[in-house]
Design a protein around this nucleic acid. Structure first.
Length: 487
RNA sequence: GGUCGGAUGGCCGAGUGGCUAGGCAGAGGUCUGCAAAACCUCCUACAGCGGUUCGAAUCCGCUUCCGACCUCCA
């Protein structure tokens, strides 16, 4: 916490010094996935971005309670507005499954995918269906405060009424008239008094499967409600950071803030962090546009836009090479560049242990370390951090080649710095197979080859090297012997 | 249509008034039996047109193009 961290706050549209409400504790809420289908790569980018935030806050000494929800009910489908079908229920009917079967399947898939990307689990991962009571209580409070009304068993939030005493556009910076004038007329919204009003509680139709009793009807909660209720429950009325994809900002987060303020007159979070979109050919990756990749397709290369597969850590590195607030465009060329860069960084990390210290040092590593912190303190600037780490890699390689001298003290700092930032902060890890007999076998083959080589039997030595290359191992002859690495 | 944001070298991508990241690709060199890796050197760009300034990729205006949101979305 000696770090002077600055965070870009969507509320102020500025970078602000990060000051938690009660350090060293930090409360962070991030809107998680709706578990009605596989997470795609764009979703993953958001959670990887917040994983970086979580990891860095933790690294600099904060005790973070990280809450990321799973939406397993109440999320309405498409153009029909609040009359639309629950996404999960729709999928369940199609697949002739219980809604909770769908939820279970895609929750497991989500967790697996997060693990593959080395995304740390949040401290608490609450579900909407697990907090129906809390949501009903919240609706009661909003009703009592006079910012909601009931029509035929459904409850709607009265946006125009709310805006008379509060600023509805505090986050999205839009005035109400503009919003009203630019809102399309949608079908099936007869019940609502105002165009911008949104549902807090929806009365279920008879055929609806997911429904719960409430004072108003047998029904289900509106989508925006769960995040208000659950952040309030686990982090309090006010907490430090609220995050999510930038596409959630104009509507979902705007409504969330309105709900919280309407119920307890406090804006829930001080810092609002929004991550930008992953694009494909310049267009947002999204399920509805049909241009999304599943992580599995990326790993295997099984997609028409892909030349080959890329490993999870390559993908993670690719994403961290762009700043979280910039759009990131996906392409094969960019992925291949990241694949090589990632390998270069990890090779340097692996060489650290074998480096020998000199009596004197030609490098001052503490300066580099400070530059790494400076990068992250500037709104989690991982691309700049990675640039600094490539400088660290250059030092490692030069020392290894005997071209640069480093003393024990600087070597220790260098090692610490690289492990801290590459593994703990960026969350990158080596993907090579470990803990088996393979290294011993390879070392033996390498020794055989070196015997042939010292006899100038290059036909044999090249045969061994080429053979290993074909099955995925690259040999590298150096002054101090031969190294191998997985290609 | 309204609101907001973006346009950086062959590709990706940082940077917000002078010091002009980084990765990948490309060229040359060192090393090496040859490779590979590594190291060194080179390629030095900011959509266009005006303006402000001693000085602009960075600030202002206009133009062109692209995107996001306005409707579920990470």
């Amino acid at each position: 916490m000696e770090q002077n961290l600055f965070v870009y706050n969507t509320l102020s549209r500025k970078k602000e010094q990060f000051e938690p409400l009660s350090a060293p504790h930090v409360g962070m809420y991030v809107c998680g996935p709706t578990v009605y289908s596989d997470v795609h790569l764009g979703n993953c980018r958001t959670f990887i971005s917040f994983d970086l935030v979580f990891r860095y806050l933790t690294h600099i000494g904060y005790k973070v309670r990280y809450v990321r929800n799973v939406t397993d009910a109440g999320h309405l489908e498409g153009d029909a507005g609040d009359e639309g079908e629950d996404k999960i229920e729709k999928k369940a009917k199609l697949a002739q499954l219980e809604p909770m079967e769908i939820v279970q399947k895609y929750t497991v898939d989500f967790h697996d995918t997060m693990q593959v990307f080395n995304v740390l689990p949040p401290s608490i991962e609450p579900t909407a269906t697990g907090h129906i009571i809390e949501q009903i209580e919240l609706v009661k409070q909003i009703l009592a405060a006079g910012f909601a009304y009931e029509v035929n068993g459904s409850i709607y939030f009265d946006v125009e009424r709310y805006n008379k005493t509060h600023d509805y556009g505090i986050l999205n910076r839009r005035n109400l008239e503009d919003l009203i004038n630019n809102t399309r007329d949608l079908g099936g919204q007869d019940e609502k008094l105002g165009k911008l009003d949104f549902a807090l509680w929806i009365k279920a139709k008879p055929e609806h499967l997911m429904k719960w009793p409430s004072p108003w009807s047998l029904g289900f909660p509106g989508w925006h409600l769960e995040c208000s209720a659950m952040s309030n429950k686990y982090l309090g009325k006010q907490f430090d950071i609220h995050g999510g994809g930038i596409d959630l900002m104009p509507t979902h987060h705007t409504n969330e803030i309105a709900q919280n303020i309407a119920s307890c007159n406090k804006i829930p979070a001080n810092y609002w962090i929004h991550t930008n979109m992953l694009t494909v050919n310049g267009q947002k990756m999204s399920k509805s546009l049909g241009n999304s990749f599943l992580p599995q397709q990326l790993f295997t290369g099984n997609h028409s836009l892909l030349n080959k597969g890329y490993s999870p850590m390559t993908v993670r590195f690719f994403m961290l090479q762009a700043h979280y607030r910039s759009t990131l465009d996906f392409s094969n060329e960019a992925m291949e560049a990241s694949e090589k860069g990632f390998k270069r960084l990890m090779n340097a990390l692996a060489l650290l242990d074998g480096l020998k210290a000199s009596a004197t040092s030609e490098v001052e590593v503490a300066i580099l370390r400070q530059r790494c912190y400076d990068a992250m303190n500037d709104d989690f600037n991982s691309p700049v951090l990675i640039a600094e780490l490539f400088e660290a890699a250059r030092i490692v390689n030069s020392v290894k080649d005997g071209k640069l001298k480093i003393d024990a003290e600087n070597l220790a700092i260098l090692g610490q710095l690289m492990h801290d930032f590459v593994e703990n902060v960026l969350g990158l890890k080596n993907e090579q197979a470990a803990n088996n007999d393979l290294p011993k076998v390879l070392d033996m083959i390498v020794n055989l080859r070196n015997e042939a080589k010292s006899n100038k039997d290059y036909a044999t030595s090249d045969k061994i090297r080429n053979g290993l290359q074909e099955i995925g191992f690259q040999l590298m002859d150096g002054k101090e012997g031969t190294n191998w690495s997985k290609i």
